[in-house]
């Protein structure tokens, strides 16, 4: 048999989808950092995380990623997309880029994606649950209601999150997320 008739295949890359995922992770990373400075519930959750706690969220096996750490000040800080040289205590990875694209285009909510086994989690489960709750809150602030309802299990009603507070906090989070700090972190990661 001539085995050369059946060549070995090295599959390619999905450049556009990876680029899109990269941007979403950047925005979500900065959004989480900002939400920790604005929202009371996020602050409470972060208080329960150990100091120096570092987690990454990204797409397995080859990224993109985002890395966030709880600083000595007790605040979360988005460290960028490079994982090298950082001790990751909680590694949350979406199992493939196609699933990541579904999640990041809100065709599958974070909770449904978790239930569908799209995430592989390596680390302490309570911390992973805490991070998922923070991500939900960040999504509620970052996204318009029509999209956020697709991303989270329960979009808070007026009693749970009064509109005034929601819009004020949203504005603060956007301002913080896209403040000059963004350019600093991008520069540091280049």
């Amino acid at each position: 048999m001539n085995i050369d008739r059946y060549p070995e295949i090295r599959p390619g890359k999905k450049v556009f989808k990876k680029a899109y995922a990269f941007v979403v992770l950047l925005v979500v990373g900065r959004g989480i950092e900002a939400a920790d400075r604005v929202d009371g519930e996020v602050k409470d959750i972060v208080r329960g995380l150990p100091e120096g706690f570092t987690f990454s969220l990204g797409v397995a096996p080859s990224g993109p990623w985002m890395v966030i750490r709880k600083e000595k000040s007790g605040k979360l800080r988005y460290l960028g997309w490079r994982r090298f040289g950082k001790t990751i205590e909680l590694d949350m990875a979406i199992r493939n880029i196609e699933a990541a694209f579904r999640i990041f285009t809100f065709r599958e909510s974070t909770a449904q994606a978790h239930n569908n086994g799209r995430f592989s989690v390596n680390g302490n489960l309570p911390n992973a649950l805490a991070i998922m709750r923070i991500m939900d809150i960040a999504e509620i602030y970052l996204l318009p209601k029509i999209i956020a309802t697709l991303a989270v299990k329960r979009y808070p009603d007026r009693r749970e999150l009064p509109p005034g507070r929601k819009h004020f906090n949203r504005l603060r989070i956007y301002l913080r997320a896209f403040s000059p700090g963004l350019f600093r972190v991008v520069y540091r990661n280049l």
């Binding site: 959750i45 909770a111 978790h114 239930n115 489960l125 309570p126 649950l129 805490a130 998922m132 709750r133 989270v152 299990k153 329960r154």
Partner: peptide, 13 residues
């Protein structure tokens, strides 16, 4: 209860 994994598959938050 926030630290228990069974909260995720529940249909309601």
């Amino acid at each position: 209860t926030m630290a228990d994994g069974a909260r995720l598959p529940n249909p309601e938050e």
